[in-house]
Computed example of a mutant assay.
Amino acid sequence: MIKEYKAEIVPLNDDFIGTKAHGNAFFTETEDNLHIKIEMFDTPKNTQHWEHFHGFPDGKAAQIATMDQDSNHDGLVDLPETEAVSGTTMVPFDDAPQNMNVPNDNYPTSDKNGHFAYEIDVPLRDLQKKFKEVFGTDDLELDKRVIYIHGVPDSLELPTSVAGAVGEYDAHTTLPIATGKIKKVN
């Protein structure tokens, strides 16, 4: 059985960033494979963009963050502020999603126009096995997840209140620039 999902990706933090990052994500799940296709426009140019789906391990439906989640009122919704409505980072859309190795440099980089396209086939059983190891279930429940696109240039001066460092990566890498709710198509 083939399951198809789509997310319309809308801007987040665009007033501060100065671009309205937007695009679409498509997921096609078959018995053996998860095909992922994401295309983004108007992202910060020449910048690597982390991208993931986020959610709640207990199966609660995640929602996208809005400026309402700016709990410290600094004008930006940072990664920790998304967690109340979106849950935790789950699966990265990098060169090997099935490894679920979030902090790395193998994510898409936008071109001089702020565009990037990402497309990959992921061995579904490998991803489900790792997902179960980390979250206790092998059901990805894509229709209960949200997608986030992250990343602004290091030259953008962020308020000191912006949190979200992951390992050696600071808030420039993890600041959300766009988000979308994943919905089942068929």
Rank of each mutant, 00 (worst) to 15 (best):
H54S: 11
D74C: 01
Y118I: 04
G59N: 02
P92G: 10
D143H: 04
G55R: 08
N99W: 11
H49D: 08
T174S: 12
N113L: 10
P57T: 08
A61Q: 02
S155E: 12
T160R: 00
A96N: 04
A84W: 07
I149C: 10
P92D: 09
Q48E: 12
L76P: 08
E133G: 10
A178W: 02
E133S: 11
D139K: 09
G164A: 03
P153Y: 11
M67F: 14
E83H: 00
G136M: 01
E119S: 08
D126C: 14
R125T: 15
L158T: 10
F135P: 02
D126R: 02
S155A: 06
P97A: 14
N99M: 15
V134W: 01
D94E: 04
T88C: 07
S155G: 08
S86I: 11
G75M: 02
P57Y: 05
G136P: 02
P159I: 09
D154E: 09
V166W: 02
H52N: 01
F56K: 00
A96E: 08
A62Q: 05
N104C: 13
L127A: 10
D58V: 01
I177D: 09
L124E: 11
Q98F: 15
G114Q: 02
E51T: 15
L142H: 07
P103F: 06
Q128Y: 13
G151A: 09
P123T: 09
H54A: 13
F53W: 11
L127Y: 05
F135V: 05
L156K: 12
H115R: 03
G59P: 01
Q48L: 01
F53C: 04
D154V: 15
F135E: 03
N104K: 04
P80E: 00
D78A: 06
I182C: 06
I182N: 04
V91D: 02
H49K: 03
D121F: 03
H52A: 11
P176I: 12
F93C: 03
T82K: 00
P108M: 09
Q69D: 07
P123C: 09
V102T: 15
D139W: 06
N113V: 10
T47V: 05
I182D: 03
D139E: 13
H54Y: 05
G87N: 06
A171C: 11
G167H: 06
V134T: 14
H172S: 06
L140G: 10
P80K: 00
